[in-house]
């Protein structure tokens, strides 16, 4: 069973459709890339999937139909989303951001354990636990956004351009982290990236969006090898 299944998803703004008939799956522990040019509709797709944007179509999370479920409920059911840009609550401390991430978690013990766990993974966040998230560096904020999203122990994590504004070395660390999350915890990861080259290295499969529709899908290996696809859709000069 797939962790996330999306069928015939359409969404837009103000009655104007932006993405149409998206069909996409993410397996348990699988990393899937969603690629495409600026304005192709990647962010719109993720926002619809997480329910903050009205949409038509069907979504299943671990086999459960979540199509009619509110955005907040979807989080509780195990669909996490790190939105594009600052995914943190800037006026709240690092610790409060993690508490917010755990909003739908009822066990105080689990919140405590997970906070300790993520402070272990990111010692920099631990040092800055009382500091406002807005005062962290871009990289630290992205770490916090991911830790925050992981507090629910989600089945699927959607990341919208996590590498945006990060130095290459920090991006590399981040991708290693995502790969480990998928491998060790079985979290399905749907990652939107401009950096197609790097993303295809950690992803198993990829979808390419063009003008709001899925134009190509295939294994990451196939997409990396096909230089024509790379030039036409991904802006990579082979």
């Amino acid at each position: 069973m797939n962790a996330l299944e999306i069928h015939g998803l359409s969404a837009g703004y103000g009655g104007q459709p932006i993405v149409r008939d998206i069909r996409l799956t993410v397996g348990t522990g699988e990393i899937v890339a969603l690629l495409g040019a600026n304005g192709a509709g990647k962010t719109t797709t993720l926002r619809a999937a997480s329910g903050v944007l009205r949409h038509s179509g069907k979504l299943h999370l671990d086999g459960q139909d979540i199509s009619g479920v509110s955005a907040a409920r979807r989080v509780a059911l195990g669909l996490a989303h790190v939105p594009q840009g600052r995914g943190t609550f800037v006026d709240f401390s690092v610790e409060e951001n993690l508490r917010l991430g755990a909003y739908s978690v009822t066990s105080a013990q689990r919140i405590q354990d997970d906070t300790a766990y993520w402070f272990g993974v990111f010692p920099r966040l631990k040092e800055r636990r009382a500091q406002l998230a807005g005062s962290l560096s871009g990289g630290e904020q992205q770490m916090l956004a991911i830790a925050r999203a992981m507090m629910t122990r989600p089945k699927v994590l959607m990341c919208d351009e996590p590498s945006l504004g990060l130095a290459p070395a920090v991006t590399a660390d981040l991708f290693v982290l995502l790969r480990d999350l998928a491998a060790d915890r079985g979290t399905g990861i749907l990652i939107v990236e401009q950096n197609a080259h790097l993303t295809l290295e950690i992803a198993a499969r990829a979808y390419v969006l063009e003008h709001g529709e899925i134009a190509i899908e295939g294994s990451a290996a196939t997409l990396s090898r096909n230089s024509e696809i790379q030039r036409a859709y991904l802006g990579i000069e082979a």
Binding site: S70, V75, G87, R148
Partner: peptide, 8 residues
């Protein structure tokens, strides 16, 4: 951002 952490 609040809906992203499950807050209604």
């Amino acid at each position: 951002k609040s809906p992203y952490v499950g807050i209604e």
